[in-house]
Structures are given as structure tokens and as C-alpha cells.
Design a protein around this nucleic acid. Structure first.
Lengths: 189, 189
DNA sequence: GTCTATAAAGCGATAGAC
DNA sequence: GTCTATCGCTTTATAGAC
């Protein structure tokens, strides 16, 4: 049954892009109203806590997407398949390097202190889920742990560099190398 | 001969830390005056263009430091020595992961568009200088290019992840692996 | 070169009509 | 649930005394 009025989840996704583009401090309510088409009345109806409330819901929304699409499959599915799927999902989600990671961006400024728990949790669970999958492929625990951390870190770095150079190909290249490194069978870590 | 009054370079270094902590949008003039001790009168005396002027000088200051301490040695010195020195300088500069890269942070938000040229130039010259050094160690051009990009990207990612997890050890671990990967002699890229 | 006072604009947030 | 009007505050930036 179609709805006339907006739903919170629609609003969250729309606002997320404004935060992604300007950062937490840089995203003003007037930009949000202009870009999303929602007036301040609607915004404060959905998010009584204002800007911080919006960001909290956006982080939860992002976390839920990654949890469902990436972390959970890494934990339970066939390890190699889940890792390959992770790489494809990451490429799609970050639009081949044209979209940044909001969680990573929040981490780099004073915004981190405001949202320290969800930010740390997102990366911790990503690394942990990937580590588990790598362990199931036969790697020992320290190797799996190190490789997982390196892969997640490299994805973040690739997003930074792709945007700094305004060259999405940097991201695509990095993803291919990350995948090869993850599945490598030689003795090094 | 000692000076009583402040010099522009002193002011730049002090302001840089405020931008580093809060990002471009998040750093307010009142925070800058509070942290640095310079009043608005002094600030606008040194930087008539205001906040954007300050950020421009800060980026130039950072660029100059890297140019002198890291890029130039990579271009002319003994390759292996210069690379090892780069890793040490990077560890010191970023305070073992407790200090972020302002250029990378600027790249992630709308601030990038304002400073696109210095941001891209910083990373382009870093990668290019490192690529040259790797080439001189015997790697062919594509290998050197790929490894240089991967290393710079990994440094940025390590800074993001270390700050997200509030765990500087992530950065230290990553630096060791990056150095090993850079100097590796096996056939893979 | 540094200060204080102040202007003009934009900010996040609220109130109340509909 | 959405709108407009508005509050109080902070922002960047300027002016002018010292």
C-alpha cells in the first residue's frame, strides 16, 4: 500500500548524502532542507534531537546495511564466497570510489568524539567478521587478524586517495589488489 | 636576534592543529583565538583572506615540510635509505597514529573542492617521488607505480582506522607492514 | 601588531497554525 | 506531518583605538 507522506527511512537516506558531502559540521540544516526537500518542521518531527539525532540515525542505517550485506555473510557463509561478495558490495556501495565512507570521514575530525561508539563498532565488527572468514579459509589467527585489519584499512585509504586525486580508478585498482592479498596462499602474513 | 612579536610561521603551525582537530568547517575563529592565544586582530592582520587564507597557508606549510623531509630525499638520495627514512619521518610526523593527516581529512568533505589543487598535488608528488625511489631499487615502472600508490594509500587508511578505533597501535602495525611490502623482493607487485 | 567593539549573516532549534 | 515565523546564539569579518 503506497504512502503519501515520507517515512523516516527515506529521510535518513536523503540526509545521509548531505552529511557525506559536507561532513557533520559542514552540513547545515538549510542545506539539508534544500537538498532533501524536507522542511525544518518535518526534520524536527522525525529527529527531535536535531542534527545530532539525524547523524545517529544515519550511522545506525549505514551500520545496518553493512551488517546485513557484508558482516553477516562473512560470519556464516562460505568464506571465499563471502569475501568475494564483500569486495563486490564494497565497490558498489562506494560507487567505484566516487562515494566516501561517512564513518571514516566522521572519524577524522572532532565529530569522532561525539559518535565514538558507533564509529569504533562499525570498524571493529567489519575487521572481526573478515578475520573470522579468513580464519575459516585456513589462515591461523594472527595472520587472519592482520590481513583483515590491513584490508579494511586499505579500503579506507583508497577512498581518501581517490577523492584527493579526484580519480576513482585509484579505488578500483586498490580493490583488486586487496582481494588478491586477502586470498593469497603464500606464507607471508 | 630574538623577536618579541609573533611571526606568521608560528601562527600557521598553531592554527594548523585546530584545523587538524576540528576540520575546516568545524574550526571556528573563536576556537582558534582561544587555542592559539592570537586575537582576531592578529589573525586578520596575518591572513586578510580570513579562514580560507589560513587554510591555504597551512596546506602550503605542510606541503613544504613533506617536500623537504620526505619527497626530496626520495628523489635524489639512496633509494632504500630514503624509503626507510620516509617511514621513520611519517611515524614521527603523525605521532605514531595520534595525529591525523590534514590533507587527507580535507579531501573527504566538501572542503576538497576549495583546495583541490594543493590536496591533489601533495598526494601526487608523494606517490611520484616514492615511485621513483622504488624504480631505482630495481622494480620496473608499473610495479613501482603500483607499490607507491598502495603505500601512500595504506598510510592514509591507517590514520583513519587508528583514529576510528582510538588505537594508535593500528598505525604502528600498518607502518611496519607497509615498509616490508615496499622493500619486498619477491615477484608479485 | 594587537586589542575591543560591533556589524551582518547564518546557525541550530522552537512555537504554533494548519 | 508540514509549514512559516521567529528566537537566541555563534559565525566570519570589519573598524578604529592604541
Amino acid at each position: 500500500m503506497p504512502r503519501i507522506v515520507a517515512e523516516k527511512s527515506d529521510v535518513v537516506a536523503a540526509i545521509a548524502e548531505v552529511f557525506r558531502e559536507h561532513g557533520y559540521e559542514g552540513a547545515s540544516l538549510s542545506q539539508i532542507t534544500a537538498t532533501t526537500g524536507f522542511g525544518k518542521g518535518s526534520l524536527y518531527h522525525f529527529f527531535p534531537g536535531g542534527k545530532e539525532d539525524m547523524a545517529t540515525h544515519i550511522l545506525a542505517h549505514i551500520d545496518h546495511w553493512f551488517e546485513t550485506e557484508i558482516f553477516a555473510p562473512l560470519r556464516t557463509g562460505d568464506a571465499a564466497t563471502a569475501i568475494a561478495r564483500m569486495m563486490r558490495s564494497v565497490e558498489t556501495y562506494f560507487q567505484s570510489g566516487n562515494r566516501i565512507c561517512l564513518v571514516g570521514a566522521f572519524a577524522l575530525t572532532g565529530t569522532r568524539d561525539r559518535f565514538a561508539t558507533p564509529i569504533a563498532g562499525y570498524f571493529r565488527r567489519w575487521i572481526s567478521a573478515l578475520e573470522g572468514a579468513l580464519h575459516r579459509t585456513g589462515l591461523n589467527q594472527p595472520q587472519a587478524s592482520q590481513r583483515a585489519e590491513t584490508a579494511v584499512l586499505a579500503i579506507q585509504g583508497a577512498l581518501v586517495l581517490a577523492r584527493a586525486l579526484n580519480d576513482a580508478a585509484v579505488f578500483t585498482r586498490a580493490l583488486h589488489q586487496i582481494e588478491a592479498d586477502l586470498l593469497r596462499r603464500d606464507p607471508q602474513s
